Simulated scan of single mutants.
Amino acid sequence: MSLYIRDDDVDALAKKVQQVTKAPTKTEAVRRALENELARVEQAVPLKQRVEKIQNSVRAKMGPNKPEFDMKKFTDEMWEI
């Protein structure tokens, strides 16, 4: 899929980013710029919200919490203590 830049100012910015970042193409320069912008915006989300998102993802993959699970007993059995 091609990227068409119709605005001369945006095209000039893309060329400048390409030169500064030494990207092989304008498309690559735009890709890098967009990835960097997404990372910047994601970093603007408070740490608490980012951690909650990760925790919810892990909980969804691991299944329900088992409060009766004895980690010490499990570890001792694993190490044959």
Rank of each mutant, 00 (worst) to 15 (best):
M1I: 02
M1Q: 05
M1H: 02
S2Q: 11
L3F: 06
Y4P: 11
Y4E: 14
I5H: 08
R6I: 10
R6M: 11
R6W: 13
D7T: 02
D8V: 03
D8H: 06
D9G: 00
A12T: 02
A12L: 04
A14V: 03
K15A: 12
K16H: 01
K16D: 02
V17N: 11
V17L: 14
Q18F: 01
Q18D: 02
V20A: 12
T21H: 06
K22V: 09
A23K: 01
A23H: 00
P24T: 10
P24S: 11
P24D: 15
T25L: 01
T25R: 02
K26F: 03
K26E: 11
K26L: 09
T27E: 08
E28T: 06
E28Y: 04
A29S: 05
A29H: 04
A29N: 06
V30Q: 03
V30G: 04
R32I: 13
R32K: 14
R32E: 14
R32A: 13
A33Y: 04
E35D: 10
E35K: 01
N36W: 11
A39Q: 08
A39E: 07
R40A: 09
V41E: 14
V41I: 11
V41M: 12
A44W: 14
A44Q: 15
A44I: 15
P46E: 11
K48G: 15
K48P: 12
Q49W: 04
Q49N: 04
V51T: 03
V51K: 08
V51Q: 07
E52F: 11
K53E: 15
K53W: 15
K53I: 13
I54F: 14
Q55A: 12
N56P: 04
N56H: 05
S57V: 04
R59V: 03
R59Q: 09
A60C: 05
K61G: 01
K61Y: 01
M62I: 13
M62V: 12
M62Q: 13
P64W: 08
P64V: 05
N65G: 08
P67G: 00
P67W: 01
E68P: 02
E68Y: 07
E68R: 05
M71D: 13
M71Y: 14
M71A: 07
K73M: 15
K73S: 13
F74Q: 05
T75K: 09
T75H: 10
T75C: 03
D76P: 00
D76A: 02
D76V: 00
E77G: 06
E77V: 00
M78C: 09
M78H: 10
W79T: 09
W79M: 10
E80H: 12
E80N: 11
